[in-house]
Amino acid sequence: MSGILIDPGKCIACRACEVACEREHGRSFITVFEFETSAVPLNCRHCERAPCVEACPTGALFRDGDGAVLVDVKKCIGCNMCVLACPFGIPEIAGKIMVKCDLCPDRRAEGKLPLCVQTCPTGALTYEEPSEFSMSRRKAYAERLALRRAENAPGL
Rank of each mutant, 00 (worst) to 15 (best):
A85S: 12
C104I: 07
P114A: 08
Q118K: 09
L115W: 05
T119S: 14
E110C: 02
K112F: 01
M81R: 13
K74Q: 12
G78F: 07
P105G: 08
V99C: 03
L84H: 05
P91V: 00
P87W: 02
P91H: 02
M81H: 14
K74E: 15
D72E: 11
P114N: 03
C120N: 05
K100A: 09
C86T: 10
G123A: 08
D102V: 15
C76V: 11
L84K: 10
K112C: 01
P91S: 06
G78S: 12
P87H: 10
D102I: 13
G111S: 01
E92L: 09
C82S: 10
G111R: 04
P91N: 07
G111H: 02
L84F: 13
L103H: 14
A94P: 04
C104N: 06
A124P: 03
G111D: 04
L103C: 02
L70W: 03
M81I: 03
L70Y: 06
G78C: 09
I77R: 12
L70I: 00
R63F: 15
G111P: 04
P114Y: 08
G111Q: 02
A85R: 04
I90D: 08
D64M: 09
E110V: 01
F88L: 08
V71I: 15
V71G: 15
P114M: 08
C120H: 03
V99H: 12
C116I: 05
A68L: 01
E92W: 02
P87C: 04
G95R: 07
M98H: 04
G65Q: 04
G67E: 02
C76R: 03
E110F: 01
V73G: 04
C76Q: 08
L115Q: 07
V73T: 10
V73M: 09
C116R: 04
